[in-house]
Simulated scan of single mutants.
Amino acid sequence: MKSFLSLGIGKSTPTIEPPKPASGILPHQEEESLANLWVDITKAEAGCCKLSTEIKNYRNALKDVQDSEEKLIRDLSNSGLAVYSPQLHQALDEYLSVTLEMKPKTEETSGAVQLVLGDPIKQYHSLYEPLDSFRRRRDAQLIALQKSQDKLDRLKLKGKRTTDVLVERDAAQRQLKDINKQLLTESKKFHSLRQPFLQPCIQAYVQTQVDYYGTANSHFTSQVQASRGVHQIKDAEYESIIGDHLKKIKSLNIVAM
């Protein structure tokens, strides 16, 4: 069985095979604890898989926003409207200036998001493979034990000698119990380490967002303030002009659609 890491990031429902049930063979408390723990692991792996997809979507969104702003400036510049409006021409120059200033930050943020959260999630996923190897060993041993038990039952029905098979069955059962305890221990360790491993990654991710949007807000605010200073427009007058422009934009058919 492959973990969802080997199936590729981006799947919203990872295939994680649970340990085979061994009711009546293994201690009930261990059996129940392992089953419940595996449910939690499956849910957590599915959540991380979705998070990996969202990281990819977010990085694409950053690039799309940057590309869209650059395209908007090109389209407005190529429309010829700026030739007839010095104010529009200056606004485009100012908008272009801010957009170009933000491009390195956009690329930096995209790379940082992958570095602080995308890559660590993939690295943690890889730790599931050794755990799944324990699970496969445990399931294989369970099958071997069941075969020994079936052989023992057949010999008993036929009234034949069962000593050798009984020794074989008991040895298989002891080995299964040992492997099951190892799997339970490793499963608990794997699941308990996820939160302390990912928490600083998520904190770093949030910091990249604060830095990115803080930088964008600072650039645009500074540019607006500089532009208003050049034109010597008072706050009330500036708000009135912007309000009028927004009303005209909202009244356009293309906006209504």
Rank of each mutant, 00 (worst) to 15 (best):
M1R: 02
M1F: 00
S6L: 15
L7P: 10
I9C: 11
I9P: 06
G10V: 12
G10H: 09
T13E: 09
T13K: 14
P14R: 05
T15V: 13
I16M: 13
P18H: 11
K20N: 08
A22H: 01
A22Y: 01
S23F: 05
G24R: 03
G24N: 02
L26G: 00
H28G: 01
H28D: 08
Q29G: 02
Q29L: 08
E30H: 14
E30Q: 15
E32C: 07
E32V: 13
A35K: 06
N36L: 12
L37N: 01
W38Q: 12
V39L: 13
D40Q: 02
D40M: 11
K43P: 02
A46S: 05
A46L: 05
G47H: 05
G47W: 02
C49V: 09
T53W: 02
T53A: 08
E54C: 10
E54R: 15
R59H: 08
N60C: 04
A61L: 07
A61G: 06
A61C: 01
K63Y: 08
K63I: 04
K63R: 12
V65A: 12
V65D: 11
K71Y: 08
R74T: 10
D75G: 10
L76F: 02
S79I: 06
A82M: 01
V83F: 08
Y84P: 04
H89T: 04
D93L: 01
E94H: 00
L96A: 03
V98E: 03
K103Y: 08
P104L: 05
P104Q: 07
K105C: 04
E107H: 11
E107T: 10
E108W: 04
E108P: 02
S110E: 10
G111F: 08
Q114P: 04
L115F: 03
L117I: 07
P120G: 06
Q123P: 06
H125W: 15
H125G: 15
S126K: 13
Y128N: 12
Y128Q: 11
P130W: 14
R136I: 11
R137V: 07
R138V: 09
A140F: 00
Q141E: 06
Q141T: 09
A144F: 03
K147G: 03
K147H: 13
S148I: 07
R154N: 08
R154A: 15
K156M: 10
L157W: 01
L157D: 06
T162F: 03
D164R: 09
V165W: 01
L166W: 06
V167N: 14
R169D: 07
A171S: 12
A172V: 10
Q173D: 14
K177S: 04
L183C: 00
L184N: 00
E186P: 04
S187F: 02
K189T: 03
F190P: 00
H191A: 10
S192I: 03
L193S: 11
F197H: 12
C201M: 11
I202R: 08
I202L: 07
A204D: 15
T208N: 11
Q209Y: 06
D211C: 03
Y212V: 00
G214V: 12
N217W: 12
S218F: 14
S218W: 07
F220N: 15
S222I: 03
S222L: 13
Q223Y: 00
S227M: 00
R228M: 06
R228I: 01
Q232D: 04
I233T: 02
K234T: 02
A236P: 00
A236R: 04
E237A: 12
Y238K: 00
Y238N: 04
I241D: 04
L246C: 10
K247E: 06
I249D: 04
S251A: 15
L252G: 13
I254D: 10
